[in-house]
Design a protein around this nucleic acid. Structure first.
Length: 202
DNA sequence: CCTACGATCTGCT
DNA sequence: GCAGATCGTAGGG
């Protein structure tokens, strides 16, 4: 009865990063940390491209200890600390070495909502539970210590599943918080599920 | 070694 | 609407 299918390596490497970012909207993100399983429908993503995107941490071949993960094979989690507080979740995409990634910016809670509410110290029906990249990581206990793991295996603490056909439209807009990226800041590389209340504002 | 800053969120006004 | 939080990373001296 379930059309749920784990996204494997062939998904993460099969398309350009823009297509992958768009396809991820509507998929289910699952975190299994300790004995706690939480999940949600991805409703907002952003694409980052190593080759020519000034907003990407690996722009122009930039290579550091932190961004090394981006140069590894597709299907790995790239999780980094932002503003000293927030753990931001990305997935490495494309052929190994292209250093492309998709940022997961928001989810609609599905499984383990009570756990997410507890971690966030909020009511379970609060729409602010997971409507932002830092918020969803907090709710799902996603931490930089998981950066570099492969998410293509059943045993992974972080996984993404393709669900059966759903009925929704996708909006494309400018990415958030990257005004420093000059002309790249105008690219419409943010993908949101139209009308979903868990999409982050702005 | 030292300093500046960020793919954000919260709380207070 | 806006300032403060908070710390690892990156880049320069």
């Amino acid at each position: 009865m379930s059309d749920k299918a784990l996204l494997a390596s062939n998904f993460w490497e099969s398309n350009d990063v823009l297509t992958i970012a768009e396809k991820l909207v509507g998929c289910e993100l699952v975190s299994s940390i300790g004995d706690v399983v939480t999940s949600g429908i991805i409703v907002e993503t952003e694409a980052y491209r190593g080759r020519d995107d000034k907003a990407c941490h690996a722009y122009n071949g930039r290579r550091t200890e932190r961004t090394e993960i981006l140069y590894h094979e597709p299907g790995r989690a790239y999780i980094y600390l932002c503003y000293g507080i927030h753990h931001l979740l990305n997935f490495v995409c494309g052929k190994t070495g292209t250093a492309d990634a998709v940022l997961i910016r928001a989810i609609q809670p599905l499984q383990g909502i009570e756990y997410m509410a507890k971690r966030r110290n909020m009511a379970h029906n609060n729409k602010n539970l997971t409507n932002g990249p830092g918020k969803l990581s907090d709710a799902m206990a996603i931490h930089t210590k998981y950066s570099g793991i492969s998410v293509t295996e059943e045993g992974s603490p972080i996984k993404v599943f393709k669900l059966g056909d759903q009925d929704f439209e996708i909006n494309k807009s400018k990415r958030i918080g990257i005004t420093y990226a000059e002309e790249c800041a105008d690219w419409l590389w943010r993908y949101t599920m139209k009308g979903n209340k868990y999409v982050s504002k702005a």
